[in-house]
């Protein structure tokens, strides 16, 4: 694995595009879209909450794909990608829980409820955060890549459970909407923010993977000659 030491410009372009989409989408969601009939202005949290949810699950799905490729190809760049996708996925899942709590208080009257959707999302957050934490205790990059991939595949089982939890069990959380059930006035800010978080997430994962690649390259590098001389 040969790390690229030039400053990565493509992720920077993605992050810039993501910020522009988010600024435009949030402006439309906050000041142009009408308030929802029952929830009023509180519903505007949807324009940031739903894109965060979609992209958190997408980041975990990328981590799952990276885990499978990492197991079949002995190339540690896939382990770097896995680490990056998990970290960004955990960040988005954490934000998702925070935004959900802020929306839950005025609508449900509580910050948190042990509802199936909320509980499975919390399990997802802690499972992937646990993988990130445990990676720090394994020094051998090859062993770390193998067991991280296995742990990621096991933890990923929770992703479809999170998605379908609102259909499988009685949940306070509303079911998924579709373009047919969302008013056209709500559609544009939602889509713009969804693409905004997608571009931002992709840029973050690329930068984080570059950082992980450089660290793994350092770990695999032979020890300095003076240290070898001292040991001999």
């Amino acid at each position: 694995m040969v790390p690229n030491h030039r400053f990565p410009r493509f992720p920077l372009a993605l992050i810039t595009l993501g910020v522009l989409c988010l600024l435009t989408g949030s402006y439309l969601g906050l000041f142009v879209a009408p308030p929802e009939h029952y929830m009023g202005n509180v519903q505007r949290i949807m324009y940031v909450h739903v894109p965060t949810a979609w992209n958190a699950l997408l980041a975990m799905t990328f981590a799952f794909a990276a885990a499978i490729v990492s197991l079949f190809k002995s190339d540690l760049k896939w382990d770097a990608r896995l680490e990056a996708a998990i970290e960004v996925g955990v960040l988005l899942a954490f934000l998702l829980c925070c935004q959900g709590a802020i929306w839950a208080k005025p609508t449900w009257g509580v910050w948190w409820d042990w509802d199936p959707r909320l509980t499975t999302t919390a399990v997802l957050l802690f499972a992937f955060a646990g993988i990130l934490a445990l990676r720090r205790f394994v020094d051998d990059p090859v062993k770390r890549a193998t067991w991280s991939a296995v742990a990621t595949i096991i933890a990923y089982v929770d992703v479809p459970i999170v998605y379908y939890s609102v259909r499988w069990w009685n949940s306070l959380h509303q079911q998924q909407s579709s373009p047919a059930t969302v008013s056209s006035q709500f559609y544009l800010p939602l889509r713009l923010n969804a693409f905004g978080v997608l571009f931002l997430m992709s840029g973050f994962i690329m930068l984080r993977a570059e950082i992980a690649s450089r660290r793994i390259a350092t770990e695999l590098a032979p020890p300095p000659r003076d240290l070898v001389g001292e040991l001999a």
Binding site: L30, I45, V48, H49, C98, Q99, I102, P106
Partner: peptide, 10 residues
Amino acid sequence: AFVWAAYGWT
């Protein structure tokens, strides 16, 4: 206030 809290924190 909840809307600004969600957007600000994000």
